[in-house]
Structure formats: structure tokens, C-alpha cells
Simulated scan of single mutants.
Amino acid sequence: MALRLPATMRVFERGWLSSNNVLFTGPHSALVDSGYVTHAAQTLALVDHALEGRPLARLLNTHLHSDHCGGNAALQARYRCHTLIPAAEADKVRAWDEDALSFRSTGQQCPRFAFDGALAAGDTIELGGLPWQALAAPGPDPHALLLYCAAEGILISGDALWENGFGVLFPELAGEPGLREQAATLELIDSLHARVVIPGHGAIFGDAAQALARARSRLDYLAQDPRRTAQNAVKVMLQFLLLERRQVALAAVPQLLASIPLVERARLQYLGMEHAELADWAVRALVRAGAARADGGVLLLA
């Protein structure tokens, strides 16, 4: 059975590297999350087509990972839209501190964008003619927000909950707590009893209880050994590079991974591997998972 959304809501389910986008129509149109920079043209095309020539009034970000805000600059150039970001990120964006914003530490791109206001946990905002509450969702990002509409039982969960897991717990790799925060965020989501969940990646779903059970199982698995979070992050960041570039020379993988500060921290602090050993492990892990294939000295998407 199809999951019912209000007539003023539309979800663009995007493929990696981009996050999903949620478009609210009506007198004060708004887009939640803008995808990755290399998909910005597609983001503009989707929004343009859906709005049928009307302007986009507002742009919001659940958090500022590059795959959720990489299209901000392009949307701002097209629409001059009023942009709201999580309040805790305001100073970093104002100064455009790419280290503090995680773009440099993850080896990812994000064109500079501006913002007009901030959204904090506890704030309520009108989207599509309905009230949405912002809720703190630390975990993959310490300053992330959920957006919840109690009137419709709809949760926009970002990277805090997907149908089959959640995002990489980057704070753990930076020496900050992430497992405990993610557990608390899952508890908060459970208390909402959402009818529909719109995740940051993947299809929308209605069985939040089953998704939460899978997420908790995954969290328990990661908590048993700190190397597991590090291994997951290395695999995800290599896959991200591969998706961005389409192919990578196998001989270049050690240096590519060494150039990403979070990967290097994971290697030194948790994994204890030499560069070549880590690269070989990561390549084999992607191939074993069916996400990539090695052919003629080149790593390719499967």
C-alpha cells in the first residue's frame, strides 16, 4: 500500500551521491536538503519541473554533510531562496571553515553558500501549510536535526534513521562520542511513533519499528569493537570517491585514502594498517560487497 503524503509534499528519492530532497509546494515553497554538488544540475531540473516556473522560497538543511548541502549554492543562485541551516553550524558557515564543516576531513566537495537564518532544536516551522518541529538528532552528525510533523505523523530523519541502518558515525572517528548519541536519537525517534519516515537515503517507509530494530542491531554490532566503525567509514569514503570519479586506478587508492584526514585517523588510531594494506583491504571489501569490481588495474563501479 502506498504511503500517503500531504498534497503539498513531494519526495525526490535520489541515488548516491545525493541525499533525498523533500519539496513543499504552496505559497511558501521549500526544499529540505539539496544533494551533492556533482548532481546539482539534476537537483535544479527536479525542482524547476515540480514548481512549474514558480520560485523556490526557502531552502533548509537537516545537517551539513556534503551530500545534503552540496546543491545549496546552485539553488541560491537560481532562486535567491531564504536558507536555514542548523544553528550550531552558523559560525562555521559564516567563516566557511571547511575543516570544521567536515568537507576537508572527508575529502568531499561543497561550493560555498550563504545562509539567512538558523534552525534550532525546539523550533517550529511551517512547511507546506503544516507545522514541523525541529528535534536534535546527534549521531552521524552532532548538530543534525530531525523534522517532525505530529499532525501527519511524518518524520524527515536525515541520516539518523534509514530503512536499513543509519549514516556513518563520523564523530567517533574524530574522537567525539557518537554511539551513545545515536542510541539516544533512536530512542527519540521511537517515542514519536511516526506513520511515515522520509530518510536521507533510500525509499520512504512506514514500518518505523522494524527500521529501529535493525538500526539498534547495527549499533550494537558497532559498539562491540571500535574498529568496526572505522572500517565502515573507510569503505564508505572509498565508495564515495568511486561514485564521484566513476573509476579509480588501483595503484592510486593508497594515496587517495591517505589524503582523507578522517581515513588517516582511522588507520592510525583504530586499524593499525600500512597505507597499502588498508587500500587492499578496502578494495577487497567493496568488491566482496558487490559495490565495485577490479579490472585491469582499475577499480570500477559494479
Rank of each mutant, 00 (worst) to 15 (best):
L257P: 05
L46N: 15
F115P: 04
M237D: 01
E152A: 14
L173C: 03
F115R: 10
G202T: 07
Y79I: 03
A136F: 01
L146E: 06
P86T: 14
R4V: 06
P27D: 15
G178R: 04
R288P: 01
A213V: 07
H275Y: 02
Q210R: 15
P142A: 03
R78P: 02
V234Y: 04
A2V: 13
R104E: 10
A57P: 01
L130E: 08
Q210L: 07
L64S: 11
G202C: 08
V11I: 14
G167Q: 02
H82I: 05
A282M: 05
V234F: 04
V168M: 09
A291W: 05
L101K: 11
A174E: 13
G167E: 02
R94I: 01
D33K: 07
V196Q: 07
A249H: 12
Q239W: 05
Y148A: 11
A282S: 13
L278G: 10
L60D: 06
R228S: 07
G272T: 02
A41C: 06
V236M: 12
I85S: 13
H65I: 01
K92G: 07
W281P: 02
G165N: 08
R10V: 00
Y221K: 13
F24K: 10
P254Q: 11
L44Y: 10
G35V: 07
R4E: 12
L256V: 07
Y221P: 03
A100I: 06
T43C: 13
A134H: 03
P226S: 10
H82C: 14
P177M: 04
R227L: 00
Q109G: 04
R245E: 12
L256Y: 07
D99S: 13
G15P: 00
A120C: 07
R227Q: 15
L135T: 02
T124W: 01
R284N: 13
A120T: 08
L60K: 11
G139L: 02
A77R: 15
A77T: 08
V22G: 08
P142Q: 03
P27Q: 14
A208G: 09
L188Y: 10
G290A: 08
I125V: 14
S18I: 01
V93W: 07
G272V: 00
V168G: 04
D141N: 11
I154P: 05
R228F: 00
